[in-house]
């Protein structure tokens, strides 16, 4: 493959880097407690929390680094950080 002239790149390639492998703690989402406020989606530095048809958060563990911000900022304590088992 030819290199991008002048060290250029087209979008999409960063997704090949699966940062989920960095994770030590894993956010577990407790649907019963979730108020669908979307705070976790807003604060996630990876932008990797989506939502399902009902508006419940769906994390993409391929990219979640386990920083814990979502759990910390969740106003209804609906996210728990659990030690990753590898």
């Amino acid at each position: 493959m030819a290199l991008g002239l002048g060290c250029t790149a087209r979008p999409g390639k960063s997704r090949e880097n699966k940062t989920g492998s960095w994770r030590v703690f894993r956010p577990e989402f407790i649907a019963d407690k979730c108020t669908k406020c979307r705070m976790c989606m807003i604060v996630c530095p990876e932008g990797c929390i989506g939502e399902d048809a009902e508006g419940l958060p769906v994390p993409d563990y391929d990219y979640c680094k386990g920083c814990g911000l979502c759990a910390e900022e969740c106003p209804s304590e609906a996210i728990e950080m659990k030690k990753e088992e590898k």
Binding site: G4, C7, T8, A9, R10
Partner: peptide, 23 residues
């Protein structure tokens, strides 16, 4: 190629040792 919202390209990435020499 050019900076263009209709066809976004990133210019001036950094190259680690696995690519620098080729550029």
């Amino acid at each position: 190629h050019r900076l263009d919202a209709a066809d976004p390209i990133s210019f001036g990435l950094f190259a680690a040792p696995d690519y620098y020499m080729e550029f």
